[in-house]
Design a protein around this nucleic acid. Sequence first.
DNA 1: CGATTCTTTGAAAACAGTCAATCTGTGTGG
DNA 2: CCACACAGATTGACTGTTTTCAAAGAATCG
Lengths: 195, 195
Amino acid sequence: MFEVFEQYMEKMVPGLTTEQVNLMRSMCSMKKMRKRQMLLREGEVSRHKIFVAKGLLRNYSIAENGYEYIVRFTDVDGWTKDPESYYSGLPSKYNIDAVEPSEVIMFTREDFEGLKQMIPVLAAFSENVITANAGLIQKRVLMNISASAEEKYIDFIETYPNIFHRIPLHMVASYLGVSRETLTRIRQGLAVVTK
Amino acid sequence: MFEVFEQYMEKMVPGLTTEQVNLMRSMCSMKKMRKRQMLLREGEVSRHKIFVAKGLLRNYSIAENGYEYIVRFTDVDGWTKDPESYYSGLPSKYNIDAVEPSEVIMFTREDFEGLKQMIPVLAAFSENVITANAGLIQKRVLMNISASAEEKYIDFIETYPNIFHRIPLHMVASYLGVSRETLTRIRQGLAVVTK
DNA sequence: CGATTCTTTGAAAACAGTCAATCTGTGTGG
DNA sequence: CCACACAGATTGACTGTTTTCAAAGAATCG
């Protein structure tokens, strides 16, 4: 499982030495997850940076009416956490679970801070990851406030071509903030045009 | 103008020495902005971290139909940039301008990276700022996909009590992704209840 | 004051959500 | 191997929210 992370880090952080990788290995925890298994529950504190080595995770919130709203998917080679709880140390309002059987590598905040002290290039890299994510989420906000349901759907399948076909339709709907039924109709409208 | 920044840094980064603050002063650029003055135009590269010492900034995108969609406000003691362009070095798709007469302190990416090397606590602090912002924007996405126009408006005035009364209604509408007219009607509905 | 800029109003139309029923595929246990 | 349960997807009718368009009414600023 760690090899995926190792290759990712070597690709993303060119100057990284073998000793530094081994240091990271000694500080991380690994976890295999079956489908639907939870990694963070509402009420718990998000204490880890989570790297996805295999599978697909989702961050979601459960509303009072029981509906699940998906705020984020994290595919292989991506990082996730609940930034709010991670930053504040307060209980999270979100959940994280596995959409597919998955494998993750995790670092507690304390350990990762220590690693950044010991591996200077890691600090810059870490900020880059978060900044890149911020760019993506800003784009998403823009779609949310400016686009129709159909445009949002098209944008989603273009932005995440490797995700949309792996998840059930109702999760796409939940991610877009659209009802299942509306999404069904949108897809049929598009299918006619495509034919 | 720098005093605001100095006080902010002393509050947020307790261990910071006077020499380190002076080092930051020597690396920054300052700018006074009149209302509507642009700080980043679509097509330019977002090269700076921007700290707001006074006033209020907005990040927005201009759609093909000419509408402006506001993806973010940055009040005093906040940081902004276009993360996508800042990260990639490619031209930005967004604009940043001043909603009020403002004063900003800016660091180029190169200079800030250098400062982080020289001031270790700065790296951790910087990541914290970005993480805290990520938490806020995640909450916003959740509102976007789960809430009605009225709920979004209420959430906005609760989340940003110091911003909503300083900006024209149509900017609130633009930020929420709602038409001006709808927002007018929502406010009147709420006003009746309040009376 | 005159010119923007901003806000409100009303009526019609488009859009998306809800509800209830049905359909489809998948997998499990008898 | 079949029957059944279950999760997921679709359909139609209806309802409700939000947008659009057009016009007019405040408010603000030089």
